[in-house]
Amino acid sequence: MQWSATKALVVEDIKVDCVILLRMLRKLNCETTVAQNGKEAVDLFLEGNTFDIVFFDKDMPLMTGPEAVTKIRSMGATEVKMVGVSADFGGMEAFMRAGADMFVPKPMKLETLDSMLQEIIGKKNMSCQTKCSS
């Protein structure tokens, strides 16, 4: 059975926040990609890139996190787990309305991140067992 790293996309325009999240993801053995705004994230999906999980900041230039979630979902990306991340109190409602799977307030804790990734790894293993055994 081929083991593949969890592929994470971080959509964040604030350098410090981006570096912190990337460090945590790498500590948890994720393969990471960065987009500086929602438009870059949408473009990555349009180019055919796939990710297991995407972390969106809320307020970014060109396209906000919730706008990007809506666009990516409308392109048929239903398997990817989309997580809104914001210090903004109204962030949760905006992300959930847009179609995000969950919302996490900033600053994100390593334990929170780890449990999200464990859930994704579990699902990947389940689908591989189903595909590999049939």
Rank of each mutant, 00 (worst) to 15 (best):
L110Q: 08
E67Y: 06
E47Q: 15
M126I: 13
N37A: 05
V104A: 06
M96S: 04
K58S: 03
K7S: 14
G84N: 01
D52A: 07
F103Q: 01
T50Y: 07
R23V: 03
M75T: 09
K124I: 03
I120E: 00
N29Y: 12
K123L: 11
P107E: 05
P105M: 06
N37I: 08
D88R: 09
L25N: 02
D57S: 08
S133I: 13
I121Y: 12
I53L: 08
V10S: 01
L46D: 02
C132W: 07
K27L: 14
F95Y: 07
M96E: 06
A5G: 02
A41N: 00
G38I: 10
W3A: 13
M75L: 15
F95D: 01
E93Q: 15
K39P: 00
V83M: 02
D101N: 15
L62H: 14
I14L: 09
M60L: 07
D101W: 03
K109W: 00
A100M: 08
L22G: 02
N29T: 07
Q2M: 08
F45A: 07
Q129V: 11
F45G: 01
A87K: 06
C18S: 15
A100I: 05
C18I: 02
F45K: 03
G84R: 03
L46C: 02
D59H: 08
F103S: 08
F89A: 15
M116Y: 14
R26P: 00
R73E: 09
A94C: 07
L110H: 03
L62M: 13
G122I: 02
G84S: 02
I53K: 01
K109C: 00
T64W: 04
E40D: 10
F45H: 07
A35P: 05
P61N: 12
V54G: 00
D59Y: 04
G91T: 07
N49P: 02
T78C: 08
L110P: 00
N49M: 11
E47R: 15
T70P: 01
E79K: 15
D59N: 14
E79F: 12
R23N: 12
D88P: 01
K7V: 09
S74M: 12
L21Y: 02
A8N: 07
L113V: 10
K27R: 11
E93I: 14
I53D: 03
K71V: 10
A94K: 09
A77H: 14
Q129W: 07
K131Q: 10
M1S: 11
R23T: 04
D88S: 10
M63E: 06
R23H: 10
K27W: 03
E40N: 03
D59C: 06
I72Q: 02
R73A: 11
M126Q: 15
F95W: 09
T78P: 00
K39M: 10
G76D: 09
A35S: 11
G91M: 04
V83R: 01
A5E: 11
L44P: 05
M126H: 12
K124P: 01
L21E: 09
T50A: 12
